[in-house]
């Protein structure tokens, strides 16, 4: 087992803004030698007890790490991929003993489910979907949504995993343009939201498969990634990031944005811009939103964290060990922030 525990002295300095409760608690090191690509958290039953585990992905292997009594992490299982590299982990929000992964080169070509044999003895993987897959998201109630394109049309498929291991498939009515990202709508159980390549937001009814509305959100939101959506008082609130956003606008460099949309009229208005503090350069590379906190890896190699209610950046994690940050995720199982570098180091805050 390859474990390294970082000493307290190695804690990277947060800036003076407000580091809050963000403290480095442990570090995982993958010695596989291949490039580290993603991290996530998952509940896994080990010897009859559900444990909050960490999943790490390198190019050709995905590993499950269980918490040890010492506060460190021990590698439990590894799934290996011989031909197609891993692009991202696709966590299933309320499922134990199962995680999905997307594999491909530039675009997703396969989605696989990773699990263990019923006696917990060996790693198993099941091929769920192949094709030119543009977007995938694990949903609540054991569902996985993905969109894929053929030459003439787009398929949006929802797969439901039954307890016994079988899968049920349902198709949602596809919009004309390519879907870039999906998000469940908190507060409206059967609503699913998608962002499209033409700067539209679409809403489906997951139960009936109906495409309910297509809403144009303006040309300043190009290639938006939707990180969170919730419905409140008849309005839809959406947290977006903009990979194509300009580096600097009058109010600073915007990384995330909260917009409010009236789904009945398709009218929208910007509510809040989440900008970098003065003196910080960079724009969004990749990030994650959980509850009221957004985290983003920036082109500068720094991780920035915003309190979405306060509206400002509350912490900055500068690059450490001469390695820029490559990805950042909030843990779905506890209050950890998981930050990774390409060399295989994963830091748990």
């Amino acid at each position: 087992h390859s474990i390294e525990q970082t000493e307290l002295a190695d804690v990277p300095a947060c800036d003076s803004l407000n580091p809050g409760n963000l403290q480095l608690v442990s570090k995982l090191k993958n010695h596989s030698g291949s490039c580290s690509v993603d991290v996530s958290a998952v509940w896994w039953e080990i010897a009859g007890v559900k444990e909050p585990c960490i999943i790490t992905a390198c190019e050709y292997a995905v590993s499950l790490w269980k918490p040890l009594d010492t506060g460190q992490w021990g590698k439990l299982y590894s799934w290996h991929f011989a031909e197609v590299p891993v692009l991202q982990i696709v966590p299933m929000p309320d499922v134990c003993n199962l995680v999905c992964v997307a594999l491909g080169n530039l675009e997703i070509r396969e989605i696989r489910a990773l699990l263990c044999s019923s006696d917990g003895g060996c790693e198993k993987q099941v091929l769920l979907r192949t094709g030119n897959i543009h977007a995938v998201l694990g949903l609540t109630q054991r569902r996985l949504v993905s969109s894929s394109r053929t030459l003439c049309d787009q398929q949006v498929e929802v797969m439901t995993f039954a307890e016994g291991g079988s899968e049920e498939k349902q198709f949602l009515m596809p919009p004309e343009e390519t879907v870039l990202t999906f998000a469940e709508v908190q507060g409206t159980q059967e609503a699913l939201l998608g962002t499209t390549i033409m700067n539209n937001i679409v809403i489906w009814n997951l139960k009936t498969g109906q495409l309910l509305k297509k809403m144009h959100i303006g040309d300043s939101y190009q290639a938006s990634v939707c990180h969170k959506a919730y419905s409140e008082m008849g309005l839809l609130f959406v947290v977006l990031s903009h990979p194509c956003a300009k580096e600097r606008e009058p109010s600073g460099s915007p990384v995330f944005q909260l917009i409010a949309i009236n789904p009945k009229t398709a009218l929208s208005v910007g509510v809040m811009l989440y900008c970098l503090p003065q003196g910080q350069a960079g724009r969004f590379l990749e990030g994650d939103v959980k509850d009221n906190f957004a985290a983003a890896v920036l082109t500068s190699g720094t991780i920035a964290i915003w309190d979405l209610l306060l509206g400002h950046c509350t912490a900055l994690l500068p690059p450490i060990s001469d390695q820029n940050w490559s990805f950042v995720k909030w843990s779905g199982t506890d209050s950890h922030l998981l930050a990774g570098q390409k060399d295989g180091n994963i830091f748990v805050y």
Partner: peptide
């Protein structure tokens, strides 16, 4: 944001859009 910017708001937007959209 003011309600005037966004037009008339309905708390039951999801049910209403589901009843209006093609099956």
């Amino acid at each position: 944001c003011s309600q005037a910017d966004l037009g008339p708001i309905s708390i039951n937007w999801f049910e209403e859009l589901s009843s209006e959209a093609p099956p």
